[in-house]
Design a binder for these strands. Structure first.
Length: 111
DNA sequence: GTCATGACAAAGA
DNA sequence: TTCTTTGCCATGA
């Protein structure tokens, strides 16, 4: 059972449009606690057990690195999914990260 | 009930 | 500039 904080995380992650990615810190900041990025990552760890699975593959660390690819069914599933959405992944690193970056704060503000 | 750990990030030295 | 330390909250033992 996910706590409210986790639910908020899942909610934001599900808002990420296809072909876009965001960072743990951005989500944490979106929730109001920029320092909670670690909790966001842990929330992603439980993302596989929530009913509406969240596109966790669209969430990477601030370096654009596929930090959590090993937590998927298969370690290569994450980059596969990203590639399918048009994102170029090289050596667990998203290329043109700034180009694919999607800011939840901005999206929510614009609504 | 407490202790340690985790898909991270920002600030200090 | 890089390296180290602290914060955050939930989960598991």
């Amino acid at each position: 059972m996910a706590s409210d904080f986790f639910e908020s995380v899942y909610q934001v992650v599900r808002l990420i449009p296809k072909g876009k990615v965001t960072t743990y810190g951005a989500i944490a900041a979106c929730l109001g606690s920029k320092s909670s990025s670690r909790v966001v990552g842990y929330a992603m760890n439980g993302s596989h057990r929530v009913k509406p699975k969240v596109p966790a593959h669209r969430v990477v660390n601030r370096n654009g690195q596929l930090s959590g690819k090993m937590h998927f069914d298969t370690p290569y599933q994450m980059e596969e999914l990203l590639k399918k959405e048009g994102i170029v992944v090289k050596n667990d690193q998203i290329q043109n990260f700034s180009q694919h970056y999607w800011d939840p704060n901005k999206a929510l503000k614009l609504d």
